[in-house]
Structure formats: C-alpha cells, structure tokens
C-alpha cells in the first residue's frame, strides 16, 4: 500500500475537525448597550406599537411579507427613536438596531448575525451608507446603497429594516 499523499492527510484532518463545533450566532452589540449608546446612557422606557389593521398592511408592503410580530417595541424621546428589529436574509433572522431622528437615519448597527453567508453587512463600512437616509416617495430610501458581492440577501434584509424603521418613526412621532 502506497503512503497517502498530502492532500489526503489534509482532507482527513478537515473531516475530523467538526468534533469541536462552536457557536453559529454572533452577538456584536448587546441590545441594552445599543440603547444606552443611542440615548447618551439614559434610554427612555420602552413603548409598544401594535402592528394591526392598516399599519400591518403598510409594514407588510415594506417588508414584502407579513411581519412575524404583532407588536414592535421602541424607545422615543423627543424626535429621536430607537428600534430593534429582525429580518431574515436567507434563512435566519438578523437583529438590527436603528436610531432615527427627525425622519433621518442616525445609526444602523447589526446587533446579532445568524445567517450562514453575508456576514460583511455587520461592518461599519457597509452600515455607514445608511446614515442620513430618509424615505422618499413610495417609502423607498432616498439614496443608493452599494451592495456586497455574495451578501445580496443580507443587504436586502437590512435595506428593508431601515425603510421600516423610518416608516415606524413617522408613525409614532406624528
């Protein structure tokens, strides 16, 4: 029997490595910390907005599907609101924190990422593109967001959530 060539040994090592599988979910920022950062260390108490009736229809239109939740929790002080929303890119929900002030995006942060592809959306170089964005006619974003190759579905999920946060902010601040 001839000795196994190097690629075979590497293959064997790779096949044995799942023995130590770890966590798939990645928490980049705890929601509580996100809220403290959004309100200078002193977040207001949460409020609840029910997604029923006409509001549910509008939310479904923005997301492209009915929302999985009946209520959305939000934090509002003056004209600044913070939202912690979830949306599935391909398979699993991405948790995103969004701060809105005066109908404009102040900050977008990926708090928890669970998808198998598209992790690049968590980086500030991507989320910074949303800063200052607002809704234009048809509840679309007023600017083009450059995508990330291979992360199309996660990029689209984040764009939907930012549009939704802007729309919800308008609902609670009028």
């Amino acid at each position: 029997m001839s000795p196994l060539p190097l690629p075979s040994w590497i293959l064997a090592l790779l096949l044995l490595s799942p023995m130590g599988v770890g966590a798939a979910e990645q928490v980049f920022l705890e929601p509580g910390r996100f809220l403290r950062q959004a309100f200078d260390g002193d977040p207001p108490p949460p409020k609840v907005l029910w997604l029923t009736g006409e509001r549910r229809k509008q939310v479904s239109r923005i997301l492209g599907h009915p929302p999985p939740k009946l209520r959305v929790r939000y934090w509002l002080r003056g004209q600044r609101s913070a939202w912690i929303l979830e949306e599935i890119g391909k398979e699993r929900p991405i948790t995103v924190g969004i701060v809105i002030e005066d109908d404009r995006v102040v900050e977008v942060r990926v708090l928890v990422y669970r998808e198998s592809r598209g992790h690049e959306v968590r980086h500030p170089f991507f989320t910074r593109q949303f800063e200052g964005a607002r809704l234009k006619q048809g509840d679309k974003l007023d600017r083009r967001i450059d995508g990330i190759s291979g992360a199309t579905l996660s990029v689209r999920a984040l764009k939907r959530l930012v549009r939704l946060a802007l729309w919800l902010h308008r609902e609670v601040s009028r």
Binding site: P18, G22, A23, A24, E25, Q26
Partner: peptide
C-alpha cells in the same frame, strides 16, 4: 454539510 466551528469558521464536507 456545513459545520459552524465557531462564529467565523465553517467547514463544508
């Protein structure tokens, strides 16, 4: 089969 070995490492077999 894809195994998430940790948050940044995946093994495909």
């Amino acid at each position: 089969l894809a195994f998430d070995l940790d948050a940044d490492t995946t093994l495909y077999t």
